[in-house]
């Protein structure tokens, strides 16, 4: 029997061969790419629309005052959104898990611990008056150093596997969390009040030059992610297949985890921890693109993140009149979406 006959059993029997294979191929092949183009185009239109709404809603003639301030805020939102989106997509590809975010590696916990330690030892006053440059760069460097040490130590000779790494990250996160809650317990209540301000993500006042630095780092990081896009496609097939297709697995994973660390550090140092944003935008991006190509999913996730944050902030300012924070809205929407995802995964 030739292999050809093998297909003539079961449900596949004779269905496709009734039409010539090549023309079916052409028709079906054209579909996904035009669909993808349409999705990316619609998302771009949505980004422009939300930016327009955000920049012009209720300006009442004070253009020269409102516009620069709002533009700066919009840039901050996009920098944070892009960094979180790209880091989450990369992290989820590496771990083959769509409900993980880099925060599981203890990033948020490390940031929280750092902020608490500062207030604890230096006092709320000196922290609040600290130069934002110093604050931003020291936070970024600390998060990076923490992640680097942790990863280098955990990856070791590469034989322990990525899940061990993730689990050790969870344990490290719990440790940071415990130390932090111990400090909070013996802290002056007034200082704790001021600490809370820092621990909730806020897109309020940002220093221009800090923002510029963050933007540069974010653009560089996203560029690296796009350079790795094709390798990421192969990594999505799993470790063993990636190796047999010629990916130097350990090197690629180490570099990509460092990239994730840089992007998360920038976003967290800029606005504080935004746990669920990445989960939300990455999964929405997969859902609308239905693609495995990272060039597409990365682009889509950045656009989705920009829409979510810019539109969210506009609604927060004009509909809710600042009666909530963007962070709490993200966590509410993200949390609900997370539960939906888990329910869907458990049924699949």
């Amino acid at each position: 029997m030739s292999p050809h006959e093998l297909t003539l059993e079961g449900t596949e029997a004779g269905k496709a061969p009734t039409r010539p294979g090549r023309s079916v191929g052409l028709v079906r092949r054209a579909l996904p790419s035009t669909r993808t183009a349409r999705v990316i185009a619609s998302l771009s239109v949505l980004v422009v629309a939300s930016l327009t709404v955000f920049l012009t809603w209720g300006v009442d003639g004070h253009w020269d005052y409102a516009l620069p301030r709002r533009a700066e805020q919009a840039i901050a939102l996009i920098v944070v959104g892009a960094a979180i989106a790209v880091s989450t997509v990369v992290f989820q590809t590496l771990t083959h898990n769509r409900i993980l975010t880099p925060s599981i590696m203890g990033f948020d916990a490390l940031y929280t611990l750092f902020a608490t330690t500062l207030v604890f030892f230096l006092g709320a006053n000196s922290v609040e008056t600290m130069d934002p440059w110093i604050m931003f760069s020291s936070t970024t460097v600390l998060l990076l150093a923490g992640a680097t040490t942790l990863y280098r130590w955990m990856i070791g000779d590469g034989s322990r596997g990525l899940y061990t790494l993730v689990l050790m990250g969870v344990i490290a996160g719990t440790l940071f969390g415990s130390i932090q809650s111990f400090m909070v317990r013996i802290m002056d209540p007034n200082e704790y009040d001021s600490l809370l301000d820092q621990l909730l993500p806020s897109f309020g006042a940002l220093e221009t030059d800090v923002l510029a630095l963050a933007a540069v780092v974010m653009i560089a990081g996203v560029a690296v992610a796009f350079r790795f896009a094709r390798t990421l496609d192969v990594l999505g097939l799993g470790r063993e297949r990636a190796i047999t297709l010629g990916v130097d697995y350990r090197r690629a994973v180490t570099w990509l985890l460092m990239l994730v660390a840089v992007l998360v550090a920038v976003a967290t140092a800029l606005v504080g921890p935004v746990t669920f944003l990445g989960l939300l935008v990455a999964n929405l991006a997969y859902q609308v693109t239905r693609m495995h190509r990272h060039v597409i999913t990365l682009t889509a996730s950045i656009l989705v993140a920009a829409v979510a944050l810019v539109l969210g902030q506009a609604l927060l300012q004009h509909v809710l009149h600042f009666n909530a924070t963007l962070g709490s809205i993200i966590n509410l929407v993200g949390g609900v979406y997370f539960i939906v995802l888990i329910l869907k995964e458990s049924r699949a």
Binding site: A229, G236, L237
Partner: peptide
């Protein structure tokens, strides 16, 4: 190398899978 396990989490078509075979030659 063809591994024992043909399970795949990524939702891809047969052609897309076969295209991955060209990765060592074309870098994608």
């Amino acid at each position: 190398v063809l591994r024992q396990d043909t399970h795949m989490t990524a939702r891809i078509t047969v052609r897309e899978l076969v295209e991955f075979g060209r990765f060592p030659h074309s870098g994608g």
